[in-house]
């Protein structure tokens, strides 16, 4: 079953007089349960594509259906709701809230889902267990290693049990050993049936995915 269906997607950035086409006629299907890697040179349009899949941005033209739903007419509030329920983001730079415990960082998306505080704590704890950090519930990001911080971020992406996990260079800020640990978690999630789309530069990391999508100058090759 297709989860993400991109048809004839174009993205044109309009910064003043200069127009730049970052995505050219992208057609891409990602099935439920698939683990796909998107690879390509810097500036090739990987993040742009990811932002569109994550409903953080809209294509200039083309059709994007997520879980069978046409997304082109979604209002901001609705796409926020879908991001909250169906999408989990993992960023290169972790993006954890400073001075906030791992548990509260992980629980944060649930606030916007209207989950009660005690339930939030339970769900966040479970998500942290899944990434092997049940002993670091109360640690602040500054007290964690880079790999641990990224695992907290993955727990945060998992906490609302999303349809799809979008990871933009999740190992980009990590050494290869921590990177491998993260990949092990992704493999486990994949085995549990989660859909994962991951951007990466590194061939080693891309190897973990069952499918590799190559992108060059805004086009899938």
């Amino acid at each position: 079953m297709t989860l993400v269906k991109l048809s004839k997607i174009n993205k044109i950035y309009n910064s003043g007089e200069i127009k730049f086409q970052a995505l050219k006629n992208i057609n891409l299907d990602i099935k439920k349960g698939e683990f796909a890697a998107i690879v390509g040179a810097s500036g090739s349009g990987k993040s742009t594509l990811m932002n569109i899949i994550g409903l953080l941005d809209k294509p200039t033209t083309g059709l994007y259906e997520l879980d069978g739903q046409n997304t082109s007419r979604l209002k901001e509030d609705n796409s926020a709701r879908i991001r909250n329920k169906k999408i989990g983001f993992v960023f290169q730079s972790f993006n954890l809230l400073p001075r906030t415990s791992a548990l509260d960082n992980v629980a944060m998306p649930l606030i916007y889902a209207g989950v009660s505080e005690s339930e939030r704590k339970d769900m966040a704890k479970k998500a942290l267990e899944q990434v092997g950090l049940d002993d670091k519930l109360n640690s602040r990001p500054s007290q964690l290693s880079g790999g641990q911080q990224q695992r907290v971020a993955i727990a945060r992406a998992l906490v609302n049990n999303p349809e799809i996990i979008l990871a933009d260079e999740p190992t980009g800020n990590l050494d290869s050993k921590s990177g491998q640990e993260i990949m092990k978690i992704f493999q486990e999630l994949h085995n549990q049936g989660k859909t994962i789309v991951m951007i990466t530069h590194e061939a080693d990391i891309a190897k973990n995915a069952e499918r590799v999508v190559k992108i060059m100058d805004g086009e899938i090759t």
């Binding site: 953080l56 926020a80 991001r83 909250n84 809230l97 998306p109 916007y112």
Partner: peptide, 16 residues
């Protein structure tokens, strides 16, 4: 700013 971006990414509406 980054915190706001993150909150929006994980599902905060503009009104939130």
């Amino acid at each position: 700013t980054r915190e706001i971006g993150l909150r929006k990414a994980v599902g905060a509406r503009p009104s939130d």
